[in-house]
Nucleic acid binder design. Structure first.
Lengths: 230, 230
DNA sequence: CACTTTTATCGTCTCTTCGACGATAAGGGG
DNA sequence: CCCCTTATCGTCGAAGAGACGATAAAAGTG
């Protein structure tokens, strides 16, 4: 409001990058190479540049830390965290972004953090303090947001490759929610929601059993009615 | 990430304070008394102090601008906005908060902004640019969040006084969503959801017609199944 | 006071959707 | 060929939602 001088703040972006990897819901973390929290795990992130928009900073950090572009997947703002003392060095307000990416060969370690890797969220959240700063809370918020959005959006497909089967999509839901879903009811629901899945010409038999129809993401983003957690 | 010097940022909070006032969904705005945007309407807000947490800054601004404490009502973080150039004076990252308050006698004009008042959101959103800075977008985001949360939470009661009738609650939904709801189905839904409403001893006849049972907020926060917009 | 208007509250009917689960289809491995 | 695995289709019963009729209880009006 006032035109007076403002206090000094640093602004960073932190990234909650989630994927499903061999049946486990996992988040991307880096090992810190300096104090504070030297050697501890942390979310990837970094300072916003003077003339950079917040989503651009998030995309840049994602690219730097993982070599990923979220063209595959999804990136959205999660929340901001600015408690005094959350960074012992200075006052930092961090804008967290939530990204969902398909299972990748390897999180191609970029320049910033050669030590980046995916770790199951259960392990990271088991005890608060396994992550540096307040990253445990940020991760928990991101995980809950992702779990909630699977219910009423088609975002689960962001965890899948370009083409996928209903069974693979179900495995995403089961890993993210940590539950088992009835294959028959799940199949009815996702194939019966117009615009959720678009069948392709191919079928596949990866995974054994009867060959399954391959699908691609459809144009629908909102699931109405939703697919509720049991 | 790096310990190098950070660029200069200012951090502010902006408030989207919503209420339902004589049947209209309205937001609190102030008239700016200085450049830029002198004389234009804007959301209340201000700079975060050096040792102040973000929610504390939001509560302080709310109190300063309206004399309100959100003990009645609800306050949650909405999103952050930090595009370069959104404030022509300097680089500002603003953390927006969403507040829901019951209808008040008058938005007791505080010290900062004697000109604060509630204006129907339709009027404010009709043309982008009716609000200063990017406050039109922030308001739109807050309005959409409020509309969505009425579906699957009991937050509509935050717009009501301590005791209220089912009809008054329905009027909240109708004003926020801009639709008409069937009084019978609505009554069945809200009284049939355990923990949503707790009956009190009294009844009232304000508004004419048959006297109505008075209710208080119940402990339930999540509406399951939700009350969907028509 | 009889009558109309207004709002509240209770019920009924139908349709959709969901969860549980049976049945069949179509691959691979022995 | 038999078995195991996964995919896909169907059926049944219960729950919830929208449409809407019916009754209740006040205030206003002649």
């Amino acid at each position: 409001m006032a035109g007076s001088e403002h206090p000094p703040f640093a602004v960073t972006v932190d990234l909650v990058i989630l994927t499903v990897r061999s049946g486990r819901f996992a988040a991307l973390v880096v090992e810190r190479g300096e104090d504070p929290f030297h050697g501890r795990l942390a979310l990837p992130g970094g300072f916003v540049r003077p003339d950079e928009d917040l989503p651009d900073a998030a995309l840049r950090e994602l690219r730097e830390e993982t070599g990923l572009s979220p063209s595959l997947g999804h990136l959205e703002q999660l929340a901001s965290y600015g408690a005094p003392g959350r960074d012992p060095r200075q006052r930092v307000v961090s804008v967290a972004y939530l990204g969902l990416v398909p299972d990748l060969p390897e999180p191609v370690a970029g320049s910033d953090a050669a030590s980046s890797r995916f770790v199951p969220v259960d392990d990271l959240l088991r005890d608060a303090g396994s992550l540096a700063f307040d990253h445990g809370r940020i991760l928990a918020d991101g995980v809950e947001r992702a779990r909630a959005k699977l219910e009423y959006t088609s975002l689960a497909t962001a965890f899948c490759p370009d083409e996928f089967t209903v069974g693979e999509l179900r495995a995403v839901y089961e890993a993210v929610w940590g539950v088992e879903l009835d294959p028959r009811n799940f199949h009815r629901k996702v194939t019966g929601t117009p615009g959720f899945l678009e069948p392709t010409v191919g079928t596949t038999t990866r995974g054994g059993g009867r060959p399954a129809q391959l699908y691609r993401r459809g144009p629908t983003t909102a699931l109405m009615p939703p697919l509720l957690r049991p």
